[in-house]
Design a protein around this nucleic acid. Structure first.
Lengths: 145, 145
DNA sequence: TTAACACCTTAGACTAACTAGAAGGCAAGC
DNA sequence: GCTTGCCTTCTAGTTAGTCTAAGGTGTTAA
């Protein structure tokens, strides 16, 4: 099976712009062209792209992905470095998930707070989000600008 | 209590550059200046910055955060919109966490695969990561460039 | 008192990773 | 034959920082 750039974009949930960008960066070394110079992707290209998308989505910079892809192409003697690289990415991603879960807690509190205000509105003087104090501060001190 | 930009940067785990950037963008409207024109942050500024950091880390663009901060300052009649905004961000963040967890599974598989290869090395002909097929393809077809 | 050091300021240049627009090629359908 | 739609390349713009340069201020140390 072979795919056009749009089909791949849909499959991978990224834009065709990004795919061209990755290709231009030499990250999709096996992509072929048809008679009209259009990019033609096969299953192997999709596998590579899946890895690229995964590493990008978990925060690995392009340059590091390029390095990893070169390691894969270099052969088995690079397995130790590939292991370290993936291990680092694993730890990084686990930390990122924990961080997002922490941030989500604050967002949950805000949602609950506003939901409560919607059901049980407060008079204008009681301003949420610590703004009451902020407004008091700002009204008692003229702007410095 | 009041804090210098460096102290705030350390507290919030962001750079002083970012804090100045947010301030320049009008996102920290209550920050004062001392006699030497240095920014002076108090607890309320820290609260605002905490929200900014949380929303940025969960993927909200600067422009949307600015809009939210204006809503907060506008008073209680904006509570419904603030609720919708936070609800959207909640859903967005939950989706992001699930996506990262999916990506983490692929990384886990790679780590396990390389760990296995380190313990039990394979001959050079058996190339991991679907590269065997990729190499077969590339060696049987000359480059189109 | 002068030097060193650490901090701050602003303006503006630079970066990563897209993102989009312009201009044009090719094939299918009417 | 013309339009539609997908593809191409090239170039320019965007976002959100990130950093540098040039300079000001205040404290310590010789």
């Amino acid at each position: 099976m072979s795919y056009s750039i749009q089909e791949v974009a849909k499959k991978m949930h990224i834009t065709s712009y990004s795919i061209r960008y990755y290709h231009d960066q030499g990250m999709l070394p096996f992509v072929q062209r048809d008679a009209n110079n259009n990019r033609v992707f096969n299953e192997i290209d999709l596998e590579w792209l899946q890895i690229i998308v995964c590493l990008r989505a978990t925060g690995m910079p392009i340059a590091e992905i390029q390095h990893y892809l070169r390691l894969v192409q270099a052969g088995v003697e690079t397995v130790p470095e590939r292991y370290r690289l993936m291990k680092t990415q694993q730890v990084r991603t686990q930390a990122e998930i924990r961080e997002l879960q922490q941030h989500l807690k604050l967002i949950d509190r805000k949602v609950a707070h506003y939901a409560e205000l919607l059901v049980n509105p407060q008079p204008d003087s009681i301003v949420p989000d610590g703004l009451a104090a902020a407004q008091a501060q700002v009204s008692s001190q003229p702007s410095t600008k």
